[in-house]
Design a protein around this nucleic acid. Structure first.
Lengths: 114, 114
DNA sequence: CTGAATCCTAAGCGATACTG
DNA sequence: CAGTATCGCTTAGGATTCAG
């Protein structure tokens, strides 16, 4: 049993808690313009384990940033998409991305391509 | 000795890593329009311990989001301020804050006032 | 006043195996 | 295909004390 009492100190705090953690930002970003299946997400988010992917998707679902649609087929098919709230987050992630891009160029940092 | 090899999977990942952690967002936000001394920051960021405050400020310094100015006086006086890169981050935090405010209103969430 | 040092806990995360 | 279950590690973070 998990104790879900989250202490929110201010509005900014609340906002960062929604998109914090190791994978949330990347997941929201890859879902920005396409609905993706579980396996597609798994391949897109390099390095994520099934456990963490599922866990993170559940949290995003609870916060209503991502929706989950199950197709009753064999083999199973599940699609993930941004909700309206999730989409509203994209422009701001885009800003962060532009900022990050500039920083990385200034500091000559390159992306780790496993 | 700490191993500083940070694995960056993509640009968005890099961006979130710069502002991630429990206090970075709040610190950047309170510094948005004022230069603050260590003690003032301590009072502003409710619940932070000196260890975490110092540690977080050091990380922000290394990333060059915050500058540290020491006055050689007795008693000591140290001022923290946003750098140019840090200031460039404010619009994005502001957007996130607006988004969070809407979310909290929709969900009837209130801020924890210790 | 502005921290540093130490010790400790919790939780986030990883690896692996298994299933309807 | 889309997940669970289990175990174990690592590290972020907390509590407290001390110091220039």
């Amino acid at each position: 049993m998990k104790n879900n009492k989250e202490v929110v100190h201010c509005i900014v705090d609340y906002g960062f808690k929604r998109v914090g953690g190791k994978y949330k930002g990347r997941i929201l970003w890859v879902l920005r313009d396409s609905v993706l299946r579980y396996g597609e997400l798994k391949r897109a988010i390099v390095g994520v384990t099934p456990k963490m992917l599922t866990q993170t998707l559940r949290e995003l679902e609870v916060d209503e940033l991502v929706s989950r649609k199950v197709y009753l087929e064999v083999p199973p098919k599940v699609e993930y998409a941004l909700t309206k709230s999730g989409q509203e987050l994209i422009p701001f992630i885009e800003q962060l991305r532009i900022w990050a891009k500039n920083q990385m160029e200034q500091k000559n940092i390159t992306v780790n391509s496993l």
